[in-house]
Amino acid sequence: MNIFRLAGDMTHLFSVLVLLLKIHTIKSCAGISLKTQELYALVFATRYLDIFTDYISLYNTCMKLIFLGSSFSIVWYIRRHKIVRRSYDKEQDTFRHHFLILPCIILALLINEKFTVKEVMWTFSLYLEAVAILPQLVLLQRTRNIDNLTGQYIFLLGAYRSLYILNWIYRYFTEQHYVHWITWISGLVQTLLYADFFYYYFHSWKNNEKLQLPA
């Protein structure tokens, strides 16, 4: 464990807690894409298959349980909660996220580190995580206005993967045999997808104006 990875995990944890807090306190999911949340639940479900078979550390197991619990409860809130679900913008959240899942499955079957069920599912979860934010970014483009908590949520989500990139660089130089091209490339693609959002987020923060994404 290094400071970059710990900071990345904490930022990631904080991003889901910010989202859960927002939905739980104001009983609204306005501006949040259910599709992105479903994709994240799928990412965690396929990545943490080994949660009961391979014990790595208490920290690792606890964090996996928190991420699984929070992502599925966010999906539950938006789908089932009688008040929250009314604020879900079904007409705007139209990204066909099934079109993201299939290519990721095919790519995971073609490019992986080891052709086993667990490894292919793990690789699938990496590819899916890289593109899972797309429905959310499309929704933001459509609804144009971003409320603070949603903006913070996306910023933290992008920041966590950027910190992971620093973690991979650190591990590459400090641990021999630590080479995971698949992880590095999908993590880089994921972070690049946030790049334009970061640009507008930073400028709105600098000029202290409401965050507006261009049409």
Partner: peptide, 10 residues
């Protein structure tokens, strides 16, 4: 070794 096989990152 088994360690690197197991993905130790979240």
């Amino acid at each position: 070794d088994a360690k690197t096989e197991n993905h130790d990152e979240l």
